[in-house]
Design a protein around this nucleic acid. Structure first.
Lengths: 258, 258
DNA sequence: TCAATCAGGGTTGTATGATAACACGACAAG
DNA sequence: CTTGTCGTGTTATCATACAACCCTGATTGA
């Protein structure tokens, strides 16, 4: 509760600043689970805002499961596991290792998603992937349309698992990865990259189309390694999360609908 | 915008009801991305609440990335990919296939997390796992303390990957799995289950301790298959997400090897 | 003594009105 | 056609008031 908000800072809403400020107090342990927050009035005066703004901030934290409040008593910090939403604040996203870690997590998900998609994909899923691929072919590399279709392809692969949470999680992680790339700001593009990336996508699609789970995850692993190197990351990390290292244990998974 | 809130309903906050109501409008497609929401005043009158309540609801939706607003213009529905937080509402959680899908996602994460943990774990990570295991041994099966230490063990494994997002995601998914179990309400417990579960954990720990990535993921796969059957799910589902999909191996494992 | 009741202050939940900041179109002046 | 101004509508914020509720402690009654 030390931060005094500066009115000159007129970027985000005041309630956002208050919320992230309280959030930081919790994350850094100055407010522990079970602790009672200062009263809304007290928060309003310490932050130099109206009680209304404080209430909007608290409503936000409450919806995230970070705090809970009871009329007549006050607001209290909730247990960490009570968090009902998963959020990565921009501050964390900017840390140097954030990109690497997020990329690793995404690789973990995506390599297995590709394998599962190969065994479960429907014809409609294939069509969605091909449409996204066409969208990438027509857009310039790195453009908004390109990125949109790139994400759309990966989303289509995830949806082919017939598990809606796969797509939800993958898109979330992928968006965070993209943001952390922007935060780092180190990216160069070339026509060669476009061709390479498209080829990687095509190989993924071919494997999924053929119902080849092993081939799909392998193609995805290669794609992620390539993507890693394209944004200046040693490609070995994506592979560490891939099942390729357990290849002896795996068998070719029988395809379903041909 | 058809719902008229009933004041008699005094469970959650009014802002929560308004937020979920608008949220539903978006989810069901009656409000599409780019659409402008009614003015705060209009929402207030249609919902029969004060403008203050509407603002708290909007603050919440804005923090979730579902809408964005600009002073002097209005509030607009954001693109689906703009979601800055990952949230699974209780309504979705109650659906019959939710548990199965979440369990599959968790398995995907956890099996690879186990392998990665085996190659990266520090001594402190091992200590944390052993502490959680001790906590499980002393608590009655299914008790709050037991569940807490169970989650603690899996969290310790995830933290052993030295990637903070692993634990963050795993805990989030695990909590949703637990909630969906509670929503389904089908669980029976026995002392035998406690012993079996503990044994599964011990084998995971042993493999991680030995730095055996292959063994760790295999042990985790077995554990998840066992956990699935304990909550009345065909164990094959967890296996579908694991890289050790191998029916012969599974047969050999059945009946507590090692 | 002990238990029940009640009054009071403090806190959150909600309502209401007002003002500032901003966006946008209409409209007149050049 | 361009530009500047103004009026209107909307969000962002402030300030105040009241209702609902919790907690505590005093009062009361047995």
């Amino acid at each position: 509760m030390t931060l005094k908000l500066d009115k000159v800072n007129r970027g985000p809403h005041l309630s956002t600043l208050v919320a992230s400020s309280i959030s930081r107090e919790i994350a850094q342990g100055r407010l522990k689970p079970g602790d009672q927050l200062p009263t809304e009035q007290a928060l309003a005066t310490t932050f130099g805002v109206s009680r209304n703004v404080v209430r909007e901030a608290i409503a936000r934290l409450r919806s995230e499961g970070r705090i809970w409040s009871q009329q007549g008593r006050g607001a209290f910090v909730a247990d960490a596991t009570n968090a009902t939403v998963l959020t990565i604040d921009y501050e964390t996203l900017q840390r140097a290792d954030s990109f690497r870690n997020l990329f690793e997590l995404r690789g973990m998900l995506e390599v297995q998603i590709a394998a599962l998609a190969a065994t479960r994909r429907s014809d409609a899923d294939i069509v969605a992937m091909e449409q996204a691929l066409d969208g990438m072919r027509m857009a310039p590399y790195g453009s908004v349309a390109w990125l949109k279709n790139d994400l759309g392809f990966h989303r289509a692969v995830a949806d082919a698992t017939q598990n809606p949470y796969m797509g939800q999680f993958l898109v979330f992680v992928s968006e965070r990865v993209r943001e952390s790339i922007l935060a780092a700001g180190n990216q160069q593009k070339s026509d060669d990259m476009a061709r390479t990336t498209l080829g990687e996508h095509e190989r993924i699609l071919a494997a999924i189309k053929a119902g080849d789970a092993k081939g799909a995850s392998a193609a995805m692993t290669r794609h992620l390694a390539g993507a890693a190197s394209r944004v200046g990351l040693p490609g070995g990390d994506a592979e560490a999360a891939s099942p390729t290292r357990h290849s002896r244990l795996r068998k070719a998974v029988r395809g379903r609908a041909g």
